[in-house]
Computed example of a mutant assay.
Amino acid sequence: MSDPLDRVVQWYPGHMVKAMRGIGERLALVDLAIEVVDARVALSGANPDLARVLAEKPRMLLLSRADLANPAITQEWLERYRARGIRALAFNARSRRDCSFVRDEIVRFAESVRGTTRAMIVGIPNSGKSTALNALLGRAAARVQNRAGITRSLQWFRLAPDVELMDTPGILVPKIPNADAQWHLALCGGVPVERYDPEEIVERFTAWAAQLALDGVPSLEAFARKGGFARKGGEFDFHNAARSYISRFNDGTFGRISLERPPEERA
Results as ranks from 00 to 15, higher is better:
Pro218Gly: 11
Glu164Trp: 01
Pro177Asp: 08
Ala181Pro: 10
Ser130Pro: 15
Ala19Val: 00
Arg243Trp: 00
Arg94Ser: 09
Arg82Cys: 03
Gly85Arg: 01
Gly227Thr: 05
Ala148Gln: 06
Ala186Met: 13
Asp167Gln: 07
Asn70Cys: 14
Ala160His: 08
Val191Tyr: 00
Ala55Pro: 00
Pro177Arg: 09
Ser95Trp: 08
Arg82Ser: 05
Glu199Met: 10
Pro48Lys: 05
Trp183Ala: 04
Trp11Leu: 08
Gly190Glu: 02
Pro169Ser: 14
Gly14Cys: 06
Ser130Tyr: 10
Met120Cys: 04
Met120Gln: 04
Pro71Gln: 05
Tyr12Ser: 11
Phe101Ser: 07
Val217Gly: 07
Leu214Pro: 15
Ile257Tyr: 00
Gly233Trp: 01
Ala142Thr: 11
Val173Met: 09
Pro218Val: 08
Arg261Ser: 15
Tyr12His: 14
Val173Pro: 05
Pro169Gln: 13
Gly227Ile: 02
Ala141Thr: 07
Ala207Pro: 03
Arg261Tyr: 08
Pro161Leu: 08
Glu105Phe: 02
Asn70Ser: 14
Leu136Trp: 07
Thr74Ala: 12
His239Phe: 12
Leu78Tyr: 09
Met120Asn: 02
Val53Leu: 15
Ala179Trp: 07
Glu35Trp: 03
Thr151Met: 11
Ile34Asn: 06
Ala110Leu: 01
Asp49Glu: 14
Met166His: 03
Glu56Pro: 06
Arg256Ile: 01
Leu62Ala: 02
Val217Pro: 03
Arg97Lys: 12
Arg108Pro: 10
Ala66Phe: 01
Arg243Pro: 00
Ile150Ala: 04
Ala90Asp: 13
Leu50Cys: 07
Asn126Ser: 14
Ala55Gln: 03
Arg59Pro: 06
Asp31Phe: 05
Ser153Trp: 00
Ser127Arg: 03
Ala90Ser: 13
Val217Arg: 03
Gln182Ile: 10
Arg84Thr: 09
Arg7Glu: 14
Ser219Thr: 15
Ala179His: 13
Val217Trp: 04
Leu259Met: 05
Gly252Tyr: 03
Phe91Trp: 08
Phe157Asp: 12
Ala209Phe: 06
Leu63Arg: 01
Phe109Glu: 04
Glu265Gln: 11
His15Lys: 06
Ala186Asn: 13
